[in-house]
């Protein structure tokens, strides 16, 4: 009987101990290993941005951001760094063109192309629940990785190794 109780105790201890290590605010993406959702957005520096822009034969970083979101400003420097060697696409959520324009003038523009998600519907289609969120998409348009929250300097190593492994 005691052994049975001990097994039960160890089992629950292990489950709860593992649970403690997880971040409750981070919800795993349901779109990993799936094709990018279809979308057609008004472009910021182009007439439009669609899912077809993300099918080009290279690894792409897709960043959901907004000029009104303070953590997006924190990660901006890291995006500038990543854009030196990678294509970074932006989807600006509920952002006015003029506000975004002055924000990018001030901080620099790391984006190859920006889509204006004025209603926020495309963000929902990508399973985005907060800003910023960043996806890495492979050459065939399959979502391979998702980073929730601002990309900090300490995250660069992991992101770069994911990109390196996909190449």
């Amino acid at each position: 009987m005691r052994i049975l109780f001990l097994i039960f105790f160890c089992f629950f201890f292990f489950i709860f101990y593992e649970g403690l290590k997880k971040d409750p605010k981070e919800i795993p993406s349901n779109l990993i290993s799936k094709k990018i959702p279809e979308f057609n957005l008004k472009g910021f520096n182009s007439s439009e941005m669609t899912n077809y822009d993300l099918y080009k034969s290279e690894i792409k970083i897709i960043n959901f951001f907004a000029s009104w979101c303070p953590p997006c400003q924190i990660e901006h420097e890291q995006l500038m760094h990543l854009s030196k060697k990678n294509s970074v696409f932006g989807i600006a959520k509920k952002n006015q063109l003029d506000e975004l324009s002055s924000w990018l003038k001030r901080l620099g523009n790391p984006y190859t192309k920006i889509g204006m998600d004025l209603e926020g519907d495309v963000s929902i289609d990508w399973g985005v629940y907060g800003l910023p969120e960043t996806f890495i998409v492979d050459e065939e348009g399959i979502i391979k990785y998702k980073h929730v929250g601002p990309i900090m300097k300490r995250d660069l190593k992991e992101l770069e190794s994911v990109i390196k492994n996909l190449r």
């Binding site: 919800i27 795993p28 993406s29 349901n30 990508w126 399973g127």
Partner: peptide
């Protein structure tokens, strides 16, 4: 649809 985007959570 929403389940497919955000998972079981």
């Amino acid at each position: 649809y929403i389940h497919s985007r955000y998972g079981d959570f």
